[in-house]
Simulated assay, not measured.
Amino acid sequence: MSVTIKDIAKIAGVSYSTVSKALNDSPLVKPTTKNRILKVAKEMGYEPNFAAQRLVSKQTKIIGLIWPTIERVVLSTLVTNISNEIRKTPYSMILSVEPIPASLEAFKRFQVDGVILFDENIDILIEPTTRPLLVYGVADKVNKYFPIVDPNHEQAMLEAVNYLYSDLGHTKIAYIGDFSNSDRMQMEKLKGFKKAMKHFGLSIAPHFLIDTKGLDWYDGYNAVSKLLENSNHPTAIVGGSYDISGGIIRGIKEKKLQIPNDISIISYDNIPQMANMEIPLTSIGVPVDKLAAEIVRSIIELIENKNLHPSIRKMTPELNIRKSCATIKK
């Protein structure tokens, strides 16, 4: 016979409602009482009846995440951090790498409480739904129906150019990234770079804007090789992502140029792996742990307060100075 809440209450010497609150991590139960109840429940081999809980609470305590790709290190790191954050809560997470319509339909069948959507290569207009949906991406008209956590690419590019120009003296700055019109996050970086250069009164040579046509290591490698074919080299490069910048570093070294003495590099993204590259990479972006914490906090707030109006939560990018940038040679 399975162990019930009543059995636990009898052994722990508390009421049924106190056991229920403790098992659901309610702040209304004193920590000492909660710990005692949890200990008794574990010793008795209690297993929660999720089906019964769902009937009472109308919740599954499951969050769905639509993952755009399993190939890129940055997204894998972000998803891992999101999973770690969710484990600190009463919720669980399931992933889908299917197209958005198929993912939403699957999550509907699973009756998830809310959905996190990575806004990359969205080729359909997502209509308002009764199921809470949080977007991680660019705040624009397309996503006006949903709360958005925006990593603030434009501000990140402004900080990157400001560091290279104001602090280190660079004026010949190139940008290497994916210019795909279907990916608003990548286009926001390009737009932010151009706007930042204009803000500081810096011109951009036509060949200083290189489209990688992709986000992989090899795309960055090919792009910087093309850039360096021109004798007019930049003194600094802003890379559009961690993977792209890894390829940029390899391409520069193969040309027998020194980083940072010949060319400085600063990369978008802010993950711990950037400190362990062959040349520790100066980076700009919202730290991945802070980004994950805000995404999880926001989706749970949305689930538990369904009347919450759509909002834009722009994050603050942070600059991590490492060994890939140096003051311009006079």
Rank of each mutant, 00 (worst) to 15 (best):
L228V: 07
C325Q: 01
T282L: 02
I271M: 05
A156T: 02
G247N: 09
F107C: 08
V97F: 10
M197S: 10
A205G: 02
L28V: 11
S324V: 00
P68S: 12
T129W: 00
W217V: 07
R322M: 05
K6W: 05
D119N: 13
N230Y: 13
A106Q: 14
N121D: 15
G177E: 12
I252V: 14
D140L: 07
G246S: 11
E43K: 08
S2T: 11
N320T: 09
A292P: 04
L78M: 14
V73P: 01
L23C: 12
N305F: 10
I299H: 01
T282D: 01
M187D: 05
K314E: 14
P234H: 12
V288Y: 03
V97P: 00
F179C: 10
R313D: 15
A106H: 12
I263P: 00
A9D: 13
V224P: 00
L202W: 04
D269V: 03
K141G: 06
H199E: 15
L78I: 13
S203N: 11
A223W: 06
P272Y: 10
K306A: 13
D211W: 03
R131T: 14
I70S: 15
K88V: 03
I248V: 15
Q273Y: 11
T32L: 09
N320M: 09
T316Y: 07
S96E: 13
G177V: 09
E304R: 07
E85H: 08
H309Q: 14
D25V: 04
